[in-house]
């Protein structure tokens, strides 16, 4: 009897974690699949099976494609700033070109936006972007570039790019810190050898740092794409997808469909698209991490 109990112990110990994951992570995905093949709203008690009907609707929905384009814009800009830009920043900070103290200060300064609550960031930037009383337009006006002033979040052309810009401000320093860890793992002998061979700062960045952090770079790129496919909160706080659906990404469009328009089945189809795209990036990430470990 005691031996049987002993055997069961590991399962019992894991059961709270497994139960929570089953109910709150995996079960909702199953529901998403079920919703996505039904025509259903939370008000009407009837479910109508529509097969792939919602996905056909999705295929012909210009707002969805526009939102998907938003996710890709998000991913592209983020790869440029948060991966390439952060790598360069990390390399400069670690190169010893500024003193140790100063480099520590810069690291913390760049990192700070990533710890702030999303609502603080959203409300602060809403005000900074305001056409009157907002800092950005005030500065443009003061330096004689008033012609470039915009109602940044209120105009269709500028709304999403303005949000994407805030995310770069928020996350670039975070990824810089992760890159710094990667750079520190490069043996300093390699840098010394490169220096003896007469390599300057740029050459040793290109030939030592970049290959040395290749694993980190791939991981960061995948994390960034994963984040860009699921992005929701910053968009919802700043514009809720407006004006006139111009700044939607998949996440905000899905939220609007599910909770505002009460088109739950269709929202499920959007959720599936979102999940598939982010899971590809996330899955590659895990696969890559496991492969490089073994």
């Amino acid at each position: 009897m005691a031996r049987i109990l002993n055997r069961l112990e590991p399962y019992v110990a894991l059961s709270p974690v497994l139960a929570l994951l089953a109910i709150f992570l995996y079960l909702p995905l199953v529901f998403d699949v079920i919703y996505s093949v039904h025509d259903w709203s939370s008000l009407s008690p009837t479910w109508r099976y529509v097969g792939l009907g919602n996905f056909r609707l999705l295929w012909n929905d210009p707002i969805f494609w526009h939102g998907l384009r938003g996710n890709f814009l998000y991913a592209a800009v983020s790869l440029l700033c948060q991966v390439a830009g952060a790598l360069v920043l990390a390399a400069i900070l670690e190169s010893g070109v500024v003193g140790r103290r100063l480099s520590g200060f810069f690291r913390v300064a760049f990192f700070i936006p990533s710890i702030l609550p999303i609502t603080v960031i959203g409300l602060l930037w809403q005000i900074l972007y305001q056409p009157d009383g907002g800092l950005i337009d005030q500065v443009l006006q003061a330096v004689g570039l008033g012609g470039f002033a915009h109602a940044w979040l209120g105009e269709e052309a500028t709304a999403l790019p303005s949000i994407v810009a805030v995310s770069q401000w928020q996350w670039t320093g975070y990824l810089t810190v992760l890159f710094i860890v990667g750079i520190r793992a490069i043996p300093s002998e390699i840098y010394e050898a490169a220096a003896i061979d007469g390599a300057g700062a740029l050459r040793s960045f290109w030939h030592v740092t970049v290959p040395g952090v290749q694993e980190t770079t791939i991981l960061m790129a995948l994390i960034t794409i994963f984040g860009a496919m699921k992005v929701f909160d910053i968009v919802w706080v700043m514009t809720a997808g407006g004006p006139n659906n111009a700044s939607h990404v998949m996440g905000s469009y899905m939220y609007q469909l599910a909770f505002r328009d009460d088109r739950v089945g269709y929202a499920g189809a959007v959720a599936m698209a979102m999940f598939v795209l982010s899971a590809i990036a996330g899955g590659l990430q895990i696969w890559h991490a496991r492969r490089s470990h073994s």
Partner: peptide, 20 residues
């Protein structure tokens, strides 16, 4: 199963979670 949870974004599951 536990590590797989890393790639499940909560944003995807908000309405099902609401129902649960």
């Amino acid at each position: 199963v536990i590590l797989g949870g890393l790639i499940v974004p909560p944003e995807v599951s908000l309405f099902p979670l609401f129902k649960i």
